[in-house]
Amino acid sequence: MGCLKRAFYVGIFPIAVGIAAWQGWSWWSWAKSPVELGEAVEQPVQIQIPEGTPAQLIGQDLEAAGLIRSATAWKVWHRLQGFQKREGGLQAGTYALSPSQSLPDIANQIWDGNVIQTGFTIPEGWNRSQMAEALEAQGLVNADDFLRATEEIPYAKFPWLPQGLPHLEGFLYPDTYQLPTEQVNADGIVDIMLLRFEQVALPVYQQTNSAYSMLEWVNLASIVEKEAVVAEERDTIAGVFARRLREGISLGSDPTVEYGLGITQTPENPLTLAQVNTPNPYNTYRNLGLPPTPIASPGIASLEASLNPPDTEFLYFVARYDGTHVFSRSLAEHERAQGRIRDRVDAQLGDDL
Rank of each mutant, 00 (worst) to 15 (best):
M1W: 06
G2T: 11
K5S: 14
R6I: 13
R6E: 10
F8N: 05
V17W: 07
G18L: 05
A20R: 00
S26L: 12
W30E: 05
A31L: 09
P34D: 06
E39F: 11
A40T: 15
V45I: 08
I49H: 06
Q60C: 08
R69W: 10
S70R: 15
A73L: 13
W74K: 08
W74V: 03
W74C: 11
W77F: 14
G82R: 13
F83E: 09
K85I: 07
G88L: 07
G89N: 11
G89K: 12
A96P: 06
P99G: 04
S100E: 11
Q101N: 10
N108S: 08
F120A: 04
R128P: 04
S129E: 14
E133T: 09
A137G: 11
A149L: 13
E151L: 02
E152N: 05
I153C: 09
K157V: 04
G164L: 04
H167K: 10
P174K: 07
T181V: 11
Q183K: 11
N185W: 04
D191I: 03
F197E: 00
Q199L: 13
A201N: 01
L202Y: 14
P203L: 07
Q207I: 04
A211E: 14
L215V: 06
V224Y: 02
E225Y: 01
F241H: 01
E247Y: 03
I249C: 03
V257P: 04
Y259Q: 02
G260F: 09
L271E: 05
N287T: 13
P291Q: 01
P291D: 00
P298W: 02
L307A: 05
N308R: 06
N308L: 12
P309F: 00
P309E: 03
P310F: 04
T312I: 14
Y321E: 12
H325Q: 12
H325V: 14
S330E: 09
S330F: 07
A332M: 14
E333K: 07
E333R: 07
H334V: 00
Q338S: 08
G339C: 12
I341K: 07
I341W: 11
V345E: 10
D346W: 11
Q348A: 13
D351W: 10
L353I: 04
